[in-house]
Write a protein that binds this DNA or RNA. Structure first.
Lengths: 150, 150
DNA sequence: GATAATTCCTATTAAGACGATATGGATTAG
DNA sequence: CTAATCCATATCGTCTTAATAGGAATTATC
């Protein structure tokens, strides 16, 4: 959560280009020029994007990459999970993990972020839609009101 | 966001010990034995905790560390920010960053997590309080309903 | 005051993650 | 056939972070 990885930033810009190309395949070379990145690096990012069926490829001359689906049907969550890794605070399975002390708290935070991101499409991101005030997790029945005071 | 850092996990366990000690100073040595960690490593974590005034120290013989405040007045957010780093997705100041495409989205996610964590105290964590269903960000007035379809 | 217990501080090492590059193979239009 | 293009893997270098090391400063006790 400490900043976006470069792979995600660049990946988003790739998807931006593909989205604006609208059905016309873009070559890695074109993207490399427009994004000022090396072709090889972009290829490395396009590989998982293709395997996850977020983009499609056409091989041979006049080939290139396309968005596999309309941008409105690609969620921010799948992009992030793919290029930045899963949104996890604590992976422990048990309910009382000795390391993180309270898995439910971390799981709630994960759900908070995931539920938010699955609700935002690539089209939303490109359109610059601004989200509203966020919700936040609330403690359950065990919670003692006023425990935090000020 | 890819898993909790070791420093945070161990830091939380330190705070757990101090919380249960209730005013009686604990030495680094004691904590090292009970947590099965090296004294030197714990010292390194206690340093920022003390500077942030989350713990207090007593020097000399019969010295040790104490919680600086009751656990109910220590928020999860400050612990996380201190030992894991700030909760940031994108640090760009401008509203249309070329790298992350849409700062408001990331800022909303940050706020979502921060607002949740500031609401959870160390006491809550130790008590194993389980948070409710999380809220999530919602797109603002520009949002087109049904944009995501399925 | 000497001594021992303890915190305090900085430097250094070790291992892993990640950005980036390099090299070559596979596919296909013309 | 050949050139354009995607496909795949291996490798290198840098930065972050966990962990160690060594010693300085403080203070209770005798």
């Amino acid at each position: 959560m400490n900043g976006l990885k470069t792979s995600l930033k660049v990946g988003l810009r790739i998807l931006e280009l593909l989205s604006r190309a609208e059905g016309h395949p873009l070559t890695v070379r074109e993207m490399a020029v427009r994004l000022e990145q090396s072709e090889k690096y972009l290829e490395q990012l396009l590989l998982p994007l293709r395997r996850a069926r977020i983009v499609t490829s056409v091989r041979g001359p006049h080939g290139g990459y396309l968005l596999a689906r309309p941008a409105a049907y690609i969620t921010l969550l799948e992009i992030v999970q793919l290029l930045q890794g899963p949104v996890t605070f604590c992976e422990c399975p048990s309910r009382d993990c000795k390391e993180c002390l309270s898995p439910p708290i971390w799981q709630a935070l994960e759900s908070c972020v995931e539920a938010s991101m699955v609700n935002v499409s690539l089209a939303d991101v490109l359109a610059g839609h601004t989200p509203d005030i966020p919700g936040k997790i609330a403690l359950g029945p065990n919670w003692v009101e006023g425990g935090l005071g000020i």
